[in-house]
């Protein structure tokens, strides 16, 4: 299945792109996707301890299974307001 990953703020700048598509096996979880993204963009390892990940605009656990067409976003802790 194909998953669209969006990058925001410092993640976007570190990866040098706003989004990227990743091919994953069926029943892959958000944790699996995170590992794939980290291997493609090892610079994100610097943010490993505080990186936030959303699935279809919602915060979920990393055990959540992904499905075709899901949209995932990687970003740092928020700082609006």
């Amino acid at each position: 299945m194909k998953i669209l990953v969006k990058f925001f703020a410092s993640c976007r700048e570190l990866c040098g792109k706003t989004s990227e598509r990743f091919q994953l096996q069926d029943k892959a979880t958000l944790r699996d996707l995170r590992s794939v993204v980290m291997s493609m963009h090892p610079i994100l390892e610097n943010m490993r301890d505080y990186l936030l990940i959303s699935l279809n605009e919602t915060f979920v656990t990393e055990q959540t299974e992904l499905k075709e067409g899901d949209v995932v976003a990687f970003f740092p802790p928020v700082s609006g307001g």
């Binding site: 925001f8 703020a9 410092s10 700048e13 740092p76 700082s79 609006g80």
Partner: peptide, 18 residues
């Protein structure tokens, strides 16, 4: 709220992370 701010000073710019 997924919003991020970047500060620009006369010398540099940097992301503020919550």
């Amino acid at each position: 709220l997924p919003i991020w701010k970047k500060e620009f000073t006369p010398e540099e710019s940097y992301w503020i992370e919550g």
